[in-house]
Each structure stands twice: as structure tokens, then as C-alpha cells.
Design a protein around this nucleic acid. Structure first.
Lengths: 420, 420
DNA sequence: ACAGTTTCCCGTAAATGC
DNA sequence: TGCATTTACGGGAAACTG
């Protein structure tokens, strides 16, 4: 019986932020013979961890003991849910920190233990189980890194508690990685990545590196950029979650096209055809590019400066597209965006996503909103274009999700069910 | 010897937020005869407060005792500075709260006590002093209310500790109030209110009410509006602090003109003359209005929807003014803003405040920012206009500031100097 | 000096209390 | 139930600490 996870951060389990409440639940999977007294469960953080294994030590600040109770909605199982748990760092143990700091904080793995003890017919039985590896962070700015660790761990190992995992993290195949990436988008934004989008991401990655090792994906910067692949992708995910959800879920955002590919796709299209892509040079930005024909019939591409969360919080993206206009000397402004690639009339596609009233010339409205505009003049050099080759279908990915809401057999014949 | 205050919130002393660190300093103003041992000072919150006087009780969570030390930069005075003090609410004292809750939390006054005890020649001497009344808040959303209380108290009484002040707060004259208001702006935004601005505010207030009592200014809503006078003014102050500082300090914002007055001022001006004013209908908004002539020579006024902090954080106000354009059917867009009232050419006034590059038709820049636009079509009815009468000059107001960094004589001949 | 990490705390949203 | 007040915590920035 699966249940929605109760994570620290929405849908990002196994990451705990110090000073922020988290919830965990343990369930006894076997029916015990009559136990007269209350069965107490105690939660401990990093219980019996060999010293030197972690550089930071934490403890549970709040009450860590609770009595098991019969679940309302299940078949009479005993379970206990710890709420309002809070982690705090132990300061200055033995004067200095344990580990020599080879790993970053988001690669340092911890775990929660659960213990219970009871007596049946004079026989004392100890129950104990523990969680999958956890990452402890102190600020949300460490969340992308922490989540990268959780994903990589659960993608590449089935070991329940290999705390040294990031000492030498294994590599992944593109097939494995593309599954998680699409799962990411479907979980957090409702709509996964389609075949084309995965292909484009794969080309971006494999064009640069032949092996998908952890550090290249999550730690090293993309050549020539001040951020790594994962930071870039995560900033896009955040942008979608906060500002682009409807547009994304309609599949209107092509997303990961390179500038070269973009031109290749647009060059044979009707003037006014545009597509939406994420910025490759800035974190968390989205732009559109449209195709036009010069007076002499030459193909011309135009793009806007990427819209970031700041600008999108002032005006929703669909309205930006509706109201976008280019002003250039002496020409009456006109919206150059006519067809969403390949050939959907703009208002047909975006019509029901528009929020505010459209901008009409004169109106009786006391305050009439017009628009936010920007444009750029792009170079007209078209570049070569390769036909995309799909590496594999994404589909729906509950796989990792199941890894995260896991199921652990304990040392004895008794078993506990853990959710974090 | 005065010192800058060390407040909880920048430049807003006497307000303490629970769970947020604050600092306080006590200074011994008399030189003591040789004291061999260290002189310890203890800080207590609401010491010996008669029960029922306050509805909420707080205590100092952190260490509240510290030893006095000789000040470096003064004439050898003993002083002690408490840092990292933190307040927490006592929960459920005697099951119920003390006061019957006639006053709101920001009207409930508290105080800090300081005690020291020493022995000279066999004679034991107790020193004790306390702070001016304090307001305790739990969220910054209560800051405007708290600051209103602190201002009103220090404006209207010299009593060092009248905790019942807000049981029946005295009234103020317009002369008193206008001083504090201007002082507010000069302290927090660098530039106080000029005579015209004070006149406009005074008319707004006195036109509605003849007496300036606390509840009308700070508690009751402006008729027909969902907010009171102080909330409205404070939201403007915040907007200036965060987004309008340069423009405000150049005195380019007329600010508090009513729509009627605005039309009166603009109607005889050259077309394209505009002025900047704060929204009277929305909290924390600024708009501009410009004058135009119809084809038939009629005077016409246009205004934009007020810019709020959200929109201003996407684009600075000076740039909005530079790039503002109106698009109406078939007409080549043009910036209608030409002269800042009374007759300063726009670029002459705002030139050095522009941030990003101006929008030119064609450019080699890869991403060229254009603009954020909005407009409205205002009614053309001009209204009557009264000539402004200055009630009094504002000038510089350190007066209240001195009230806040105060000086208290204690019970005995010994005196302590307190700063919060 | 610096980078990785934590702390601080505003401001919004949600929860709580009355 | 609605309003007043507190709590929660993301997010940006400052402070800390090797």
C-alpha cells in the first residue's frame, strides 16, 4: 500500500533542511500477537555512525519518541507518524569536524533510524530499521545539489544504505538519465519531456561528453558558462513551475532547441512562425524566435531577450506573446508572432491561456494594460541541421518514485515500512 | 554624546520583532569611585509589570547579563552593549491572557529594565533604569502599525513610561504631524517633503477630518478605501525606498496631488507635459499623467495604470519614463512624455537616471531591451483649482530622532544612559 | 582573500487562536 | 465564522569559517 510521500520540500523527499520541520512515518508490516502495552518508536539521526564518516553531525531537536497506533484507513496495521521533527547541527564536536571535506555537503549522506522494543511471552524483541540515505542542507540554495544526489543515488544503486556512494559515484547511461529527466518534468510540471526534447538534451550532453558521470552533470560547469548542466536544467524546471505551467502543459514550449536547430526548423516556415525555447546562456530564461522575410526575400530571424522570473511575474507569458510588438523606425507596430511552430495560428494555440484583457487602441477601461515588449535583431546566417534521432521513449516514470517511497526489510522476521 | 541608534529594523528603533535579534546599550553617566569588581548589568523585559497591563508576555531568550566595560572612544565611561538579544512570547500563563484585548498588539507598550548592583565602602548601591516604551511585533507586516505607535508616543508625550498611553491617545496638531511626516521621508528616503507636498497631504487629511486623532490616522480606513491614511503613506515610503530613490531625491515626484489638482496644474501646460504622482486608490503605486490637445484643440489628460513594486522590479522607473510609448490604431508610436512639470525637458531631467541602453530602432546588440508600456484614457473634465497655502515649513527634523535616542535620569543620583 | 556553507531575516502564505 | 495575530519557510544577502 503506497502513500504520497511527505517530504521536506514539495515532492522532493530525502532532503532535510536544518531548522525546517519534516515528517516521517513508520509502519509495522506484520501483525503482532497481542501486545498489552503501548509500542514506543524512537527516531535517531545518524545512529551509531562510525566517526569520521560525515563532516557534519546533526541531532533531532524536537521530541523523537512516539507511540504506535492502529491506522485508520488500513487493515489494522500499527504505524506512527512523526511530525514537526527538526534537525540542528551539533557544533564543535571534539574541536574539529570529522571528515576531511572531500565531499560537498550535498554529497554527504545521512540516515534516520527507528527503534522499537517489546516483550512477548517473556521474550524481548528489538525492532530496528532505517531510511534510505538522506541529504541535509541548510539553505534552499542547496536544494538543486541535494536533489541531484538523491536522484543519482536512487537511479544507480539498489543498496539501502551506501553512505560512501559519492566517494566514487557510478556513471549512468543516457537511457537511464533520460528517464529521470523526463520523470522530473512530469512530476514537477505535469508534462514530461517528449522524444524530441530528450533528443535535443541528449545531443547537448553527448555532443560534449561521452560518458555521463556525476561530476560532469552536477558539479562541473558547462564549457564557457558559469553554471553546470543540472543547475541550468533545474532553473528551467523552476521557471516552468512558477510561470509557465499552462504553456508547458500544452506542449507549446519546444524548449531545448539550440540556436542552430531553431533556425533550421524555422527557415522554411511561413513568415511569422515562431517557437519557444529556453535560454542556453542565462539561468531560468525563456525566449521566442520568429522568422521573417526581408524585402529582398532573404530569411531573417529575430529573438527576444530571455524572460526571467522577474519579468514574468510582472506579466504572464501568454499575455506577453499576445501583446508582443516590435517598434522600428516609422513602421506601424504589429505583432510579428503569427504561427506557433510548425503552423498553429497563435490565438488558436494560446487563446484560452490569455489572462488579462487584450490591448485595444481606445477603451473605456480606466486603466488599460498594454504590454511588455522587447526584441532583438538576430544574425541571418542559417546553420546546418541534423535530423533528430530519438534515443528512447520517455513514457511515465513511477520507477524512481517507487524507489523513493521505499520498503525495507529489517534484520529479524519483523518488518517496518518507512516513508519520508 | 549621541550615537546612531541600533534598531531592530533599520532606523526604526523601539520596535522589537519576536525571534529576531536586537541590540541595546546602557552607559553609566557618572564616574564611580574605584570599584574593584566587575559591574554586572542585567536586562529584564517588562520587569515588575502589573499583571493585566499587557495581554502578551515576553521574555529574553538569550543571555541577559553582561559586565560593563570602559568605552574605547569616550571619556572613560562604563558601558555595556547587549547584542543578539531575542524575545519570545510566554505561552499560556495562567491559562488565559492578561488584558481584555482592547488594544491591538502594536498599541501594547512594553519596556526593558537594566539593573546593576555594587558596593562602595560597605554601602550597597542599586542602579536601575528602563527604556522608553517598546512595541513588540511578530511579523514585519505589523511594522507600519508599530512604527505609527512609536511616532505618536514620542511626538505627543514626554513621559518616559506611560504604558497606558494608547488607552486614550492624545490628538496632534497638523503642525506637529507634518513635521514628523517630513522627517519620515527625509530619514528613510533622503529627501523630506516640500511645502507643496505637505500642503497637499494636509488638505487630503483636513479636508476629511478636523482633528488629527490617532485612530483616524492609523486605524480607520480612508472613506471608500480598504486602507487607512498611514498604511497608504507607508506603502509609498516603501516604494520610494526600494524603487524610486534617485527620482525622489531629485524632487521629480510631485507625489500627493489629487486628480483634480493634477488637471488644474497641467491644463495650461504645453502638450506632453507630465507629472508623477502616487496612486490614491492602490497601495504603493506611482503613475504619471500627461496633457495632450485633441485635434479640435480640446485639452485631454492621460494616465497610466499605477506601477507597483512588482512591475518596477522588472524595469526601473526612469527607464519606464524614457521608453513609454502609446500605441493606438495605425499611429506610429511616440513617447508622449516630453516635459516634466512645469517645463523641464524629459531627458534633461531624467537623463542621468537612465539605467539600461535606450531603445533604438536597429542595433547590433544581441539582445536589445525595448520597453514596458501601459496607458489609459482619462476623462477630459477639468476641475476647479485652489491655490495652495503652505501650513508650515518642513526643514530638517532631528527632533524626534532625539526623542528616540533618549536620556533618562534614574531614581538615585546615579544615572544611566540608554540606547536601543 | 576566498569559496563553500550557514545564519539572518524580510515578506508571503498558511495556520492558529479568539 | 471572520478577523487578528502568529508561525512557517522560500529566497536573497550577509556573516561566518576554515
Amino acid at each position: 500500500e503506497k502513500q504520497p510521500c511527505m517530504p521536506t520540500h514539495p515532492q522532493k523527499p530525502l532532503i532535510i533542511k536544518t531548522g525546517v520541520q519534516f515528517t516521517t512515518k513508520v509502519r509495522l508490516l506484520v501483525k503482532l500477537p497481542e501486545v498489552d502495552y503501548q509500542l514506543k518508536v524512537k527516531t535517531t539521526f545518524d545512529k551509531d555512525l562510525p566517526p569520521g564518516r560525515v563532516s557534519r553531525q546533526f541531532f533531532i531537536l524536537t521530541n523523537n519518541t512516539k507511540v504506535m497506533d492502529i491506522e485508520d484507513y488500513s487493515n489494522g496495521c500499527l504505524s506512527v507518524e512523526f511530525r514537526h521533527l527538526q534537525l540542528k547541527e551539533k557544533k564543535y564536536i571534539n574541536g574539529t569536524k570529522g571528515n576531511e571535506g572531500l565531499l560537498s555537503v550535498t554529497e554527504e549522506l545521512h540516515y534516520l533510524s527507528f527503534e522499537a522494543c517489546f516483550t512477548v511471552q517473556g521474550l524481548t524483541i528489538d525492532l530496528e530499521t532505517c531510511s534510505l540515505p538522506l541529504v541535509v542542507i541548510s539553505n534552499v540554495s542547496q536544494l538543486p545539489g541535494g536533489w541531484a544526489s538523491v536522484m543519482w543515488y536512487n537511479l544507480l544503486t539498489d543498496e539501502p544504505r551506501n553512505l560512501a556512494f559519492f566517494g566514487n559515484p557510478p556513471r549512468a547511461t543516457w537511457s537511464q538519465l533520460s528517464e529521470v529527466l523526463s520523470w522530473q518534468f512530469s512530476t514537477f510540471a505535469g508534462q514530461g519531456l517528449n522524444r524530441e526534447q530528450l533528443t535535443m538534451l541528449g545531443e547537448k550532453l553527448l555532443g560534449m561528453f561521452c560518458i555521463l558521470c556525476y561530476s560532469i552533470l552536477f558539479k562541473e560547469n558547462i564549457p564557457g558558462k558559469p553554471f553546470g548542466f543540472w543547475m541550468w536544467l533545474d532553473s528551467i524546471l523552476e521557471l516552468i513551475k512558477k510561470h509557465l505551467l499552462p504553456v508547458w502543459n500544452e506542449n507549446f514550449i519546444m524548449g531545448f532547441v539550440s540556436k542552430e536547430m531553431e533556425r533550421c526548423l524555422l527557415k522554411d516556415r511561413r513568415p511569422g512562425t515562431f517557437l519557444l525555447r529556453f535560454s542556453e546562456s542565462h539561468l531560468g530564461g525563456i525566449t521566442f524566435t520568429w522568422v521573417e522575410h526581408n524585402d529582398n526575400g532573404e530569411v531573417k530571424f529575430n529573438s527576444v531577450e530571455p524572460y526571467t522570473k522577474n519579468r514574468l511575474s510582472a506579466l504572464p507569458f501568454a499575455d506577453i506573446i499576445r501583446d508582443y510588438k516590435v517598434i522600428s523606425d516609422g513602421v506601424v507596430p504589429e505583432n510579428p508572432l503569427k504561427f506557433l511552430y510548425p503552423d498553429i495560428p497563435k490565438d488558436e494555440a494560446f487563446g484560452r491561456l490569455y489572462n488579462s484583457q487584450p490591448s485595444k487602441g481606445e477603451s473605456a477601461k480606466p486603466f488599460l494594460h498594454l504590454e511588455l515588449m522587447s526584441y532583438s535583431h538576430a544574425s541571418t546566417t542559417p546553420l546546418s541541421c541534423q535530423s533528430p534521432e530519438p534515443p528512447m521513449t520517455p513514457g511515465e516514470f513511477n520507477m524512481l518514485n517507487e524507489h523513493l517511497c521505499f520498503d525495507i526489510d529489517t534484520v529479524s522476521l519483523h518488518s517496518l515500512y518507512i516513508l519520508i
